[in-house]
């Protein structure tokens, strides 16, 4: 068991170093999505809570239920965008199948509301 843990930890350290060097070069990975009318904008991080959720003054007219639903919809879109971007970035240094298994799936959901750098 200890040998397995040590081997796993060593592998993680190696991958972490490769990832770290790569991200240092490419910058932090985030995803972003907005409502079509700009009511809600979410900046997401891969595998974590959104780093920023903003709503426009006019979005308050949607009421608490409508606004909550829109925030959830946009946050999910931003989350998929962040995971997809991480997949694209790290697939150069980590096996793409392993990234998908970890939940960082490549999304084909690139419609007009997706974020472009």
């Amino acid at each position: 068991m200890d040998d397995e843990v040590e081997r796993a930890a060593r592998k993680v350290r190696e991958v972490e170093q490769a990832v770290s060097e790569h991200v240092t070069r490419s910058g932090p990975v985030t995803g972003r999505a907005s409502s079509p009318d700009g009511a809600v904008t979410v900046v997401a991080t891969p595998g974590g809570a959104p780093s920023q959720i903003t709503v426009s003054p006019s979005s308050l007219r949607m009421g608490p239920h409508g606004l909550a639903a829109e925030i959830m919809r946009v946050a999910e879109k931003a989350r998929r965008d962040a995971n997809s971007r991480l997949h694209q970035t790290l697939s150069r240094v980590v096996d793409a199948r392993e990234l998908t298994a970890l939940g960082f799936e490549l999304s084909r959901d690139d419609d007009e509301q997706g974020w472009r750098p």
Partner: peptide, 12 residues
Amino acid sequence: PRGEIRALHLHP
């Protein structure tokens, strides 16, 4: 744990 919002309630 991955930051997915499963439910959201806003007080008026």
